[in-house]
Write a protein that binds this DNA or RNA. Sequence first.
DNA 1: CCATTAAGAGTGT
DNA 2: ACACTCTTAATGG
Length: 252
Amino acid sequence: MISSYSNSASIDQRETSLITTACTSCTNKKCLINKNLPSPVVRIFTKHRKEIRCKKGQQFIMEGAPVTGLFFLLKGTVKVLRTGLHGKEQIVRFAKEGEVIGHRGFGTEESYPIGAIALEDSLLCYFSKDLLQEVLHTAPTFTYDLMLFYANELNKSEAKVKSLSQMTVRERVIDTLLYVNRKFGQQNGFIALVLSRREYADYAGTTEEQVIRVLSALKKEQLITTKGKRIGIVHLALLKKEISEHNFYLDS
DNA sequence: CCATTAAGAGTGT
DNA sequence: ACACTCTTAATGG
């Protein structure tokens, strides 16, 4: 089945007994691996999973580094970015628990096109590239799920191209606010994920100053509230309305 | 607990 | 983009 590991059953036993959070007891139902546990190939595969602990601010995927494997975010939040020509960061997306990271490194690519940095202390599941490729060849439902995921990712990516090219700065900042709010929700009246103004700018494709100015304008208009780094959405409907002509991507 | 310092938010040019 | 002030969070005695 998985030829390179078929003769190491005893090692499997030892490893599984040491793993604290095995895939079989994982609560993350959105995880593609978790969904495909009924497949015996996938189940064997999960025994070779590695856990990686990542501290806040730590980069665990280096842009341009050789592809070694695939990450699943078990706990925490991560920003995925591409560095532009003048050292400007372009944040591609923010990932929360259950999401796949580093998947674009597969296929013909030999190095990661993106970097990934933990925004808070995070826990990652890691699967090596070779092993994953074998599983993809033998577990069609898993491969199909992953294909759907790739198609969806491409859709979001195209929506983002439109956002960056057709929206004004103010609209892009609003769009970013709505995206982060939609994805991470609110807590005590503020967006649950705390980002710096710089990070909002890096996602919206603008500068920190522009973001600060738009935010203070929105604050004056009573559409949002701020408290330190935290931002609260006051008038969600009006903010949505302002970018509604762009017919924006729902959910990310 | 308060004082110092560093980091980041705002603002004007 | 840069220079500057103000606010807040972190550090250390």
